[in-house]
Write a protein that binds this DNA or RNA. Sequence first.
DNA 1: ATTGAAAATGAAAATCATTATCATTAATAA
DNA 2: TTATTAATGATAATGATTTTCATTTTCAAT
Lengths: 148, 148
Amino acid sequence: MAGPYKWKHGRQGFFSRWTEPRKAILNLLRRTSKHMSAKEIYTSLHRYYPGLGLTTVYRTLDLLARMGIIQKFSFGDGQARYEFKSNSKTEHHHHLVCSQCGKIIDYTEFTEEELKLIQKIENTLEKKYDFEVQGHNIEFFGLCKDCR
Amino acid sequence: MAGPYKWKHGRQGFFSRWTEPRKAILNLLRRTSKHMSAKEIYTSLHRYYPGLGLTTVYRTLDLLARMGIIQKFSFGDGQARYEFKSNSKTEHHHHLVCSQCGKIIDYTEFTEEELKLIQKIENTLEKKYDFEVQGHNIEFFGLCKDCR
DNA sequence: ATTGAAAATGAAAATCATTATCATTAATAA
DNA sequence: TTATTAATGATAATGATTTTCATTTTCAAT
Ligand SMILES: [Mn+2]
Ligand SMILES: [Mn+2]
Ligand SMILES: [Zn+2]
Ligand SMILES: [Zn+2]
């Protein structure tokens, strides 16, 4: 009896095969500027990959999120939304969410002041609450141009 | 045939009767420091109000949120959570969310610097995006003391 | 006190996003 | 090739929230 099989494991042992569905889903999120839900991703890709199933979309999104490649958000409209997570700090951004129509606007204009303060706050929190800060979600909600 | 009936309308025309279930739900949220879900509120109150239905809890939470008395949150654990919204600025707070166990910690220690900067950012956003800011959600996520 | 319109309620059914099952297919080390 | 595991997708199950609908409650007008 042979010993256990060995696999070329994918990045960080999260998966072992970089398949078509996975590529397609990540590429879509890479390209789009939208904050897409699983259903939207499925509908968008199903056109080119008729075999693709919604289950695989959910599984892949979970996988990519666990790997830290994409970020999952709950904006409060009942479905999770995802976006590609750039590793460059300059592309980090926050959100403006219209509480009327649900539109989401990316907000990227950070001042030095802002960046420093956030860093300072995170340090304070780590000490005060013995909490390891991994990231933050900052959103401003209100009424967008069209919903005023 | 008499003309249309006239009603003493409740605050801002959102409702017309300040009933027992409504009082009970608001009072619970007023007292607790937790961030409770509809189900949790239902379970907690059902003990004292055996007639209370989960549907009424959902309806009342929606009502109170629309009135601006409570705030609805989506922390990403699959169910909405609610908390009483103090009108005093000193009680405004942000959240630390443990991505492992879901624990939510209120964070209230704001510096002058922090408050001013947030105000400044909101003003910038209003102009730049023609967006009427009504509030913000700021959360830091990571690992709590027990989950490190 | 009685009446009748409208509001509020709760049980049950419906909806909708997400997850679990399971049988099938694809990939690949041996 | 073959044996073994990974990946997939159809389907069923789950769980939170909403909708429907029949009943009860409230209250202004009589
Ligand atoms: Mn974004
Ligand atoms: Mn809180
Ligand atoms: Zn809008
Ligand atoms: Zn924790």
